[in-house]
């Protein structure tokens, strides 16, 4: 007896989203890139790691659509596998950051005694630029996929915690929170069915925007050599490798950079559209 007749703010937001052509484009591009990354082994016949020094730094041709890199590997193949790694780090990192940040924000609003401590810690996190923060974390945790995910997650976490707390505080002021408590509900039901269920829209919007930041941070760490170690394909490190041959073979860095740019732009467009659609004041 739940969804059938529900035409609340959720569906209005959705209608507005579908009317926006930017959403279609951004979502289409992201889905395309994600599918290409996931099905990379079936899309290309080249091996992303097998070197062919005779073929190095070849410009785009019919055989190698985007040319080859300094080790003679097919660049398109490298980019597909690289997008796989970068998106994985970005998505897993954002998911980790959103879970942690969301939990911190909701708890800070729900248990007012924790609020002061939690938010001062978040302030400290926020006072570092996220690149610097991610860099130091990646350096401390050492190389490896999981430490990268943690570094990216902890970098996006403070912003999400802030937004979650704000959204949760305005929900906490509603009478239905008292109503839930007066029914005798335990805290975990109040936090989930009452607080989270009503506070999630702005958190979700912000998290979409944070995806872009996370992907960018993942690529930056790779570019600076703090990402996964070579020869692992990763968009940032592909761009960094190409940098040494920028004048002889500009296609390597350029292609990798454009791919990063497109991914980040798409996430930002999507987040902006979500924010506009969720804004009740906009008509």
């Amino acid at each position: 007896m739940t969804d059938a007749t529900y035409t609340g703010s959720g569906s209005r937001t959705w209608r507005r989203l579908r009317r926006n052509p930017m959403v279609t484009i951004a979502l289409g591009v992201l889905i395309l890139i994600a599918l290409a990354a996931i099905f990379a082994p079936w899309l290309t016949s080249f091996d992303p790691y097998e070197t062919a020094l005779r073929q190095r730094l070849k410009p785009p041709s019919a055989e190698h659509l985007l040319g080859t890199d300094s080790q003679g590997r097919d660049l398109l193949t490298r980019l597909l596998y690289g997008a796989r790694t970068t998106l994985l780090i970005g998505c897993a990192g954002t998911a980790f950051g959103a879970l942690l940040g969301g939990a911190i924000g909701l708890c800070a609003a729900f248990y007012r005694r924790l609020d002061g401590v939690f938010m001062r810690v978040i302030d400290v996190f926020l006072s570092f630029p996220s690149i610097l923060f991610g860099l130091s974390l990646a350096a401390i945790l050492g190389p490896g996929l999981d430490s990268l995910i943690i570094a990216v997650g902890l970098s996006v976490m403070p912003g999400i915690a802030r937004i979650s707390r704000g959204a949760a505080l305005s929900v906490m002021a509603q009478d239905y929170m008292d109503s839930g408590r007066s029914i005798g509900l335990p805290d975990r039901s109040l936090l989930g069915r009452y607080l989270l269920a009503n506070a999630y829209p702005p958190i979700l919007t912000y998290t979409t925007l944070a995806f872009g930041d996370a992907v960018l941070l993942a690529a930056t760490l790779g570019f600076l050599g703090l990402g996964l170690q070579p020869p692992t394909a990763e968009l940032g490190s592909i761009a960094a490798e190409g940098r040494s041959f920028l004048f002889i073979a500009p296609h390597v860095s350029t292609a990798a950079s454009i791919l990063i740019f497109v991914i980040v732009l798409s996430f930002n467009l999507l987040g902006d559209a979500l924010r506009d659609a969720g804004d009740r004041r906009a008509s």
């Binding site: 739940t2 529900y6 609340g8 009478d175 239905y176 008292d178 109503s179 269920a197 009503n198």
Partner: peptide
């Protein structure tokens, strides 16, 4: 208008 959780039927 405020005392019923809007997400619940």
């Amino acid at each position: 208008f405020g005392s019923l959780n809007p997400r619940m039927s």
